[in-house]
Design a protein around this nucleic acid. Structure first.
Lengths: 209, 209
DNA sequence: TTTGCGGTCACCCTTTCGGGTGATGCTTGA
DNA sequence: TCAAGCATCACCCGAAAGGGTGACCGCAAA
């Protein structure tokens, strides 16, 4: 009976050391229990289906299916799923997207153990635990600043060292169109030039590192 | 007596969860002992001076002084220091540099717990524990492909959206000199243009993300 | 001491970028 | 239904980038 009252936790992260860290952090919490581990987004979805945990800790950077896709997939199937984002780097759009995608908590890996435990507990109680700076990011401009899929596609080709003309050939569109897209991208990212745009996009998580 | 035979370990990483993971991994190893924790490069150096650990686990990405500088600083003061690099991302030059800088082991954070323990033990016995792909990287081209500090400085300004002319003004050198440096950078990185160079440099760890 | 390398600079010339302006067709949501 | 946003394309023009070539200085290693 008492055992059933424990908060059942699933941890999805491709770093075993982080799993160990979570285990360590939870082992002294009598009201929590780590019931599953996943090392990829795909595995996270499978484990979620099997275990239906109360709280899921989800890293955003994982092999095969990324954390964001996994989060969305899980929420589509289980809209009540309570998922906490666990990320290395602060200030990227990935995080903002995760919140938009339905995450109810946000933890940096540099968080203290006590923060982890507190967040899990509060999220389980139904609260949302989003740091102000992330909430601001959503409120202010990141939502509007989002690049379209087409823009990201073009920016990726530009980052790979292709000129506007070559990008146009690759995508079977005119060079002028590519220029037009790049113009929009630079404006959205407040970049001085294409190089700046790529570096901003990489920093913010629009482009894979 | 027996206690003194334990391998004394210092862990330097800005992620408390990783510390916890290391604690967890070590807690069942009777021949090892975690004697210190550092959360920045600077702190790592200070802790090393104070504790003189047998083995140091060092993350490369840390605030204030980076792991690489800390490693170099420690090795300069204590040439016999046995330092294992603990990194998130594989395949970057940072790792290769760390090896050049005197690291005797290299662990991905995605390593298994058993690998961590084994590496610590072997490194303490005097072995080097460098994965073949990293060793290859050193042997083949990364050594020659290294950018000079000046080139990195210029590339960083270019990544920030400055034109050659502006970079020249900032550094009080001619625009022509900047072009000359960028030419070399692009050749070394096998980049098509400056944008490509920046994206390659960020991927390889020349430029901070 | 000579060689190499890093850092500095210059000139020329072609290609590419980036800004401005404007226009069309399609889809989607208010 | 109508506005808004996305993707598409065109033309002009000045500014910047990039390729080639060559040169000088200082320092450190061979």
């Amino acid at each position: 009976m008492a055992t059933n009252d424990k908060i059942r936790i699933l941890c999805a992260d491709d770093h075993p050391l982080v799993h160990d860290g979570v285990s360590f952090a939870l082992q002294f919490q009598s009201d929590m229990e780590l019931v599953g581990s996943a090392f990829s987004g795909q595995e996270a979805v499978e484990q979620f289906r099997k275990l239906c945990p109360d709280v899921t800790l989800m890293d955003l950077q994982m092999p095969r299916m990324g954390g964001l896709e996994a989060l969305v997939a899980i929420r589509r199937e289980f809209p009540k799923a309570r998922i906490v984002v666990l990320t290395t780097y602060s200030g990227d759009v990935q995080a903002a997207r995760a919140i938009s995608g339905g995450a109810v908590g946000y933890l940096l890996k540099s968080s203290l153990r006590t923060e982890l435990v507190r967040t899990v507990r509060e999220v389980h109680q139904g609260l949302r635990r989003i740091p102000p700076e992330i909430a601001d990011m959503l409120a202010t401009r990141y939502d509007a600043d989002d690049l379209t899929p087409r823009e990201v596609e073009i920016l990726r080709l530009v980052a790979a060292g292709n000129s506007n003309k070559v990008v146009g050939d690759r995508l079977s569109i005119s060079e002028e169109t590519v220029k037009s897209h790049m113009k929009n991208v630079m404006e959205k990212l407040a970049a001085n030039d294409r190089t700046h745009a790529v570096s901003i996009a990489m920093k913010r998580g629009f482009l894979a590192i």
